[in-house]
Design a protein around this nucleic acid. Structure first.
Lengths: 348, 348
DNA sequence: GTGAAAGCGCTAACAC
DNA sequence: GTGTTAGCGCTTTCAC
């Protein structure tokens, strides 16, 4: 077995408290003479003693560990495929956690179908939950959380204002996309969405799209919202493209969708951006990798992750973070997937 | 505070052991009458009791948690930038861990400059260490590990055969790259390496390159090995390219290097693959994203991660995995970055 | 200056 | 069938 404080104490001829005091500086009421301290250190060294952080955490009732919750109904997150959405978010979460001295744990219980028992199992000082399409079941479980929790992509109001939240300004982001396309001369613009749940960012972006298109003077109807059901969106995209796109530009729910659209378009001989402009959402490094480079609304994902942890750590400390609902601005990274439409003159 | 077994016991009018027996099925010597069991369940339900897994782990002396060790001298791994090497490896590690019911933890202590104190701190049932360029200091720390450990990219022999290992067949992989280029007609082929440490895969690949080039009948010398010092490899690449490449094809240490080469080449008006063929190493999804798509030796990274966990779990169970040193074969994914050299006829 | 006691939440072993 | 004891490794409290 591992060598414990008791072993060190025995060897040094003192009690465990003294060892705690000397080696970890924790038993603050205890005073130790320099010579004893030296003896303890010596013994620890010789035995190769290492503090059992796990035992300490158990006693302290704090684990210095943050759990990542993944929405139910999603598969376990994958880093190596698709757009870099999750990768960027994780980078932010890890950066933030490390900065505060916390570990980050991916736990099968928290990422499986039923995180309920994982949430309050004592291993986590706090949790981060991100989901772009929460379902009622999710929300109920989260409300049962006894540990501090921060929401990403989901406004606090959706969970009775019990947990702070971080998300981006979807409305402003969509406006940037439309404005950009509009200025290039596009008038027939569609929105492509992957899935659709009754609330949240998906809907927020669609609503923003409707709103701004109307304000720009080109109100849209149902046929301008392309909804691709989760599993088989290539199919939906193909159907749309095969009839020859009715629009000159597409705004996509996220970069993965935009990438899919571009790849399918290529198969139909539709060139981007010459025949069709495409705008993504997230603007991770992925956008620079694909061809053509993807014009995309930038959501500060790394920052969102990092700031979510800042909020979480405050909650763990018992504070009430201020602001409680963090909305970060979006930008627009113009790359190569958007251009003046073939049939329209450029407008300034 | 959280509700504990004692609270439930009290409410149900029984002792904690009974609760343990009923709710977790753990106190196997204890027999409980159906009616008592029901009372306990009722009480637990009403109080919203959740088993404190942390406390249980403490008692059991097993955490069901695996720590990921990142070589010293590296920065903390980043998912959202560069090639998808780390992403793919992590996907495999997570998949394997989840399959066995283990969590995966990224801990600042294990990823910082001095993981020594993190290694034996009781929080991990096992560790996975990956590093493409270990230094002596790394190795000494690893040898001090009291918990099971699996090496990725590093043969067991480098650590006194104390830990099992997983890596790919670098020699075979490099052969595939050379063979492919040779068949296309390339004869002047260079190897581009990012960093160089006295041992390990970097050296193994370089050695393999020398060996196979000689066997194919085109022995190389120092000037055919392009070594780019870690921080500023763009500079080294630029210097090489600016003189007009002396070779018709480059084999690169990994996809990130290959990508860098291609991007720099573009700035010099050197087209890939028309003027210069480039082969990467790893062949993650990254290769399909870049332009041109990158021909690359495929290293089964996801599989390596997954199998590393299989080995680790066996060690945790006290078994000695067989085989102890796992070497997985490489493949070659031919994409768009390699072609017949301009100056050479195609050879079959 | 130093040590003894007590307890974090859980469960194996044993007693009744 | 059910309860008591004891202990995982650590640290706080308090007594000496």
């Amino acid at each position: 077995m591992a060598v414990t404080m008791r072993d060190v104490a025995k060897k040094a001829g003192v009690s465990p408290v003294v060892v705690s005091r000397v080696l970890h500086g924790r038993a603050s009421t205890v005073r130790v003479s320099p010579s004893t301290a030296e003896r303890v250190r010596q013994a620890a060294q010789e035995l190769g003693y290492r503090c059992n952080v796990f035992a300490r955490s158990f006693r302290d009732g704090q684990t210095l560990n943050i759990g990542i919750l993944h929405g139910i109904g999603f598969a376990r997150p994958v880093f190596s495929q698709g757009s870099r959405y999750f990768a960027a978010l994780m980078d932010g979460l890890i950066e933030g956690a490390f900065r505060h001295g916390y570990s980050v744990t991916l736990c099968p219980k928290l990422m499986g179908g039923s995180p309920a028992e994982g949430i309050n199992d004592g291993r986590f000082d706090g949790l981060v939950w991100y989901s772009t399409m929460p379902v009622e079941e999710n929300l109920r479980m989260l409300l049962a959380s006894r540990v501090p929790l921060v929401l990403i992509h989901t406004p606090s109001s959706l969970l009775q204002d019990r947990f702070p939240s971080v998300r981006c300004d979807n409305v402003g982001g969509i406006r940037l996309a439309i404005e950009h396309l509009w200025n290039l001369g596009h008038r027939r613009i569609a929105y492509v969405t992957e899935e659709s749940t009754p609330f949240m960012e998906t809907q927020e972006r669609i609503a923003a799209f409707r709103k701004w298109m109307a304000e720009f003077g080109a109100p849209v109807d149902e046929s301008d919202i392309l909804a691709c059901p989760g599993s088989r969106h290539a199919e939906t995209i193909d159907r749309y493209l095969s009839e020859g796109p009715r629009h000159t530009a597409l705004v996509c729910q996220h970069d993965g969708v935009a990438d899919a659209v571009i790849r399918r378009a290529r198969l139909f001989g539709i060139r981007v951006p010459e025949h069709l402009s495409v705008v993504g959402f997230d603007s991770t490094a992925f956008c620079d990798e694909v061809e053509p480079p993807l014009t995309s609304v930038s959501q500060p994902l790394v920052n969102i992750g990092s700031q979510a942890i800042d909020l979480l750590v405050r909650c763990i400390r018992g504070e009430t973070p201020e602001p409680f609902d963090l909305v970060l601005p979006c930008g627009l990274d113009v790359r190569g997937s958007t251009a003046t439409p073939a049939s329209h003159p450029k407008v300034d």
